[in-house]
Nucleic acid binder design. Structure first.
Lengths: 224, 224, 224, 224
DNA sequence: CATGAATGAGACTTCATTCAT
DNA sequence: AATGAATGAAGTCTCATTCAT
């Protein structure tokens, strides 16, 4: 498979950034791994930072698209949450394990990088928060601050994914991780169940349960 | 308040590492902020990496102690989970906002640092995993893989804390973040409730609910 | 005459090491004298030590080749000894006075340098010792320990050459030094002469004198 | 044996300078080995260079005194030459092997040190040269340039001594080195022997031989 | 387009020396 | 006199970036 020079550079850089970090990996490292000359890199990217940004932008974009695609299928909220978590996990795996980690460099070390990455995180976060908020409104997600919930969700996902990719006992985690994660995520978000029979059930919860029950039909109807 | 030179160095370094990252912050930066000479630092630490490690070790230690202290009070599992999450959050806040972030540099950029930090993370994680596992055995936490759950829990906590400290809308998050976080954490972990009246309830869940009900008394009795 | 960058670096470094010593001369000194940037040096040599080693290896190599070339001409032992001493002297002079001095830094100041330089000295020394030993066997050199003799010979040569190049009264020494040195060297090594008429003459000495007398013919006739 | 602080410093420094060189050995090294504080050294010596100079001056002084003492015994020239060489060798050995090596740091690396050491070498050299010259005048040493001869003599002595102390096969060299060296030195300097019976003998050589024969009496009679 | 030699600013670290105690 | 913490100048080496070929 022949890749464009640019693609080779990006892939190599992504692997190296993930493995060794932005500062620890040198342009020569990238050039060597991509089998190009140092100078060639500068035909495609004006600077090392820009390579980093290209990668991060692309990765965040991919993730958003993935979730968006799922959402357009009009799944139940539970399905959406579980699917999103699992998709993100699988993506990391399929894409090559390494590049994924880029997303875990939480605090890029230069002002420009930090600023931009924070923006991207914020966008993804807002997207997820919006999904959650709409779930809350529909009663299919328990009442909570959408932003906090989204942050927690992403954090939880990154942590488990990261550990699966880089930590010990990876193999086991690669297998059972996604399901476990999806369950935790849904537990954290789902409305209290136990319909009318529970004395302590609040009104909000009651209607929530009702909404959940009807959700499937809604989805069915609205999908077209 | 007079601080020892070493303490001044550590605090300055922590602040700077958190703010700018390990590589972006120079020894001169640290020296300047700590108002000491460059050379002085080397009386206390053999290298920049060692400053970093000193900070990280201390911070992880603090966190473990904090949780351990709470555990010795024999709280209910819910109380323990909520308290742990909240304590970690508050610690970050009280301690000065900056140092906390050190824990968020997930992938330190040199082999030595990465290795050691991963070990420390692993220890904290195992500690939390053990707590979860014992909860699962007692039935006060729903059945799950303790390691995955611990990873998710910590990831969620770090994400929200990090955002509260560094992200937008910090003030609001500083206020309501801990509670929200604690609730999410407990939702993710607690056993399914809704006792006998729920038809779908498994045996495990039933005994779990029972255990939860009795927990408070246990704690009260067993404390001596 | 255009020189390669590498050659310019080596020559400058050699001059500076000789003039100021390994530690006193900085990379910037070398770069400045060679009219290159500091960084450029590192394209050719991985470290300052490696520049030093490159120089020393080359110089030792040159000297051995020089002597070897003379030896292949099948000279008499006296001719070989005198020629070797004089050649070494002239080489130093022709080559630019400075580089020669490198050989006089007897105790390079880092373990690695010391070790390697001692090895090189040892090789040259063994080479000379072998020549002496074969002379002793042939009776054209008086009976002595070849290693001690070689050490002394080299030491004497270096001392006089060094003084000629660096000390006071250099001009005079540059002129008459080689001859004087060659004579001393030969005096120190030659077998006792004064054949049979000396009462004290030993058998060994007698045959030695005889061997010396015949040597020329041997050389003339052939390789044996 | 209690030594004065100053003496401890000098001895430690000498050992370290010899072993590792001037620049490679730090004040802290010296302080540590001498079991004093860094600051204490500065009560006795204004700088590192001055420690070095103190050592070198003392060592050169010792050597000159040693030879001078022998000279005052009115030995034959041969005896004087052999004794001097052997004494210098033994001194190095007795004194502790290490400090001796100071003399082998031929090119001290700072201008001030180099200048002073060259002066000291020059003095020793002149002293030896004077001895040789007087031998030449008396006919007990063959006709040669006294300065070159002295330089060669010292160089030869240093080389063999240095190798005995630091090189391979040290034990053997420690034993037989002095004698071998003394013999080489005398061979290099002595007048051609074999009196009138040798046809090739020059006039100078003849009178030289005669002078050698009478030397003992001369010495007995007086200083002139 | 591509190369890789060359640049030079700047990083970490060392260490002779000082000085308050 | 003695200590050793503190200083800060200076050294080696790295590496993103440029540019002639």
């Amino acid at each position: 498979m022949k890749q464009s020079l640019e693609e080779k550079i990006v892939r190599s850089a992504a692997k190296l950034f993930a493995r060794k970090g932005f500062h620890t990996c040198t342009m020569r490292d990238i050039a060597t791994m991509a089998r190009v000359s140092t100078g060639a890199i500068y035909h495609y990217f004006p600077s090392k930072e820009d390579i980093y940004l290209a990668i991060v932008r692309r990765e965040y974009g991919r993730r958003k698209e993935m979730i968006e695609a799922k959402r357009l299928e009009n799944p139940t909220t539970e399905d959406l949450v579980r699917s999103a978590v699992i998709l993100l996990f699988k993506m990391a795996e399929e894409y090559g394990r390494a590049e994924q980690l880029v997303l875990h460099l939480r605090v890029p070390e230069t002002p420009r990088l930090r600023k931009e990455v924070q923006q991207l995180r914020e966008q993804l976060l807002q997207y997820v928060a919006d999904l959650i908020e709409s779930g809350v409104r529909k009663g299919t997600i328990r009442s909570c601050d959408p932003t906090v919930a989204a942050t927690a969700l992403i954090g939880m996902g990154e942590a488990v994914t990261g550990r699966a990719l880089a930590g010990p006992a990876s193999e086991y985690l690669m297998q059972s991780g996604p399901e476990q994660l999806a369950t935790m995520a849904w537990q954290a978000l789902r409305p209290d169940r136990c319909g009318g029979s529970c004395a302590a059930t609040t009104n909000a919860e009651t209607s929530a349960a009702a909404a959940a029950a009807e959700e499937k039909d809604d989805a069915g109807r609205g999908g077209s």
